[in-house]
């Protein structure tokens, strides 16, 4: 399997020019996380994305942030983003109302290796809000289910109240040839599911390592441990992909804010093959 990134075609408009889009809905997922759906202009390239890519969302007069697209790539008339409110710009984003306008640039970055994974099993490993950038890949796999073998979705979260897309996740687990397991770091006494770090779910996975492609997204520490553990379990490193997070500003590899070793995460990532990014995973900051 190639370890090359999956470079996307650049957006047709000037990359630094935001497109005004109207917010259709804001849905509360958890106590601090919301899903926004926006309506891009019909036919605008801003809406043509590959699973794993992100947009730059601009709250006018407040600031701009990179946000992964979390919706179905087959739905072109809307774009979906899941945003955790942890700062001024994200707070302003999630408190917008339907009908308000925000600016969008993108889509930017590389995508999950869905073509390379055809004919193989797919192991999705998500941590926290890392499930959001993986959801478009799950939608795409489910839409083309015959192209893939087993689908396993492992999801780790801080506590039961932090779990995203709960109903949808439960429904995935009921699909044929699909395994969906979640675990939390801490559970209340009423929680009947798994408690422990996401890597503890690996032993429940039934698949052939050589015939599996893993896609991992979550906090960097979690991704590092997950990738190491999968490698120890026989998954070829070139078949492990991670989505990296850095301080992305321009989205097009101009400004250098998101540089990681020889890469600009916004342009060469965010999705990397493990061998590409492994030397930089242990570094505090470059």
């Amino acid at each position: 399997m190639s370890t090359a990134s999956h470079a996307a075609a650049p957006p047709a408009r000037p990359v630094m020019e935001p497109v005004p889009v109207q917010i259709r809905s804001v849905v509360k997922e958890t106590h601090d996380t919301f899903t926004l759906t926006v309506a891009p202009p019909p036919g605008d390239p801003v809406s043509a994305f590959e699973p794993g890519q992100f947009s730059m969302l601009y709250v006018f007069g407040v600031g701009e942030l990179p946000i992964s697209i979390s919706g179905d790539p087959a739905v072109r008339e809307s774009l979906t983003y899941t945003v955790r409110s942890v700062g001024q710009v994200t707070y302003q984003l999630v408190t917008r109302r339907p009908g308000d306008y925000i600016g969008i640039r993108g889509p930017f970055g590389t995508s999950w290796p869905l073509k390379e994974a055809r004919g193989k099993s797919v192991l999705i490993v998500a941590g926290g809000i890392g499930l959001a950038p993986l959801r478009p890949a799950i939608y795409s796999i489910l839409r083309h289910r015959g192209d893939y073998n087993r689908l396993v979705i492992l999801y780790g979260s801080r506590s039961p109240r932090d779990l995203l897309y709960r109903k949808e996740f439960a429904a995935w687990g009921l699909l044929p040839d699909t395994q969906a397991l979640c675990t939390v770091d801490y559970g209340g006494v009423s929680w009947r599911g798994y408690v422990g770090v996401v890597t503890t779910l690996f032993r429940h996975v039934r698949m052939q390592p050589q015939e599996t492609v893993a896609m991992i997204c979550g906090p960097e520490i979690m991704m590092r441990y997950a990738a190491r553990e999968l490698e120890a379990r026989g998954l070829p490193p070139a078949q492990i992909y991670l989505s990296m997070e850095r301080n992305m500003k321009c989205g097009a590899g101009f400004c250098g804010h998101c540089q990681l070793g020889p890469y600009f995460v916004c342009k060469h990532g965010p999705v990397f093959a493990y061998p590409e990014i492994k030397p930089y995973l242990d570094l505090y900051e470059l």
């Binding site: 601090d32 942030l65 990179p66 946000i67 992964s68 899941t82 945003v83 955790r84 942890v86 700062g87 710009v89 994200t90 941590g127 926290g128 809000i129 959001a132 950038p133 780790g156 979260s157 801080r158 932090d162 770091d185 979550g218 906090p219 520490i221 979690m222 997070e245 850095r246 301080n247």
Partner: peptide
């Protein structure tokens, strides 16, 4: 105990 999923532990998405 690292609490990697806490807001302080990850960059805002």
């Amino acid at each position: 105990v690292l609490d990697v999923y806490s807001p302080k532990g990850v960059r805002a998405q």
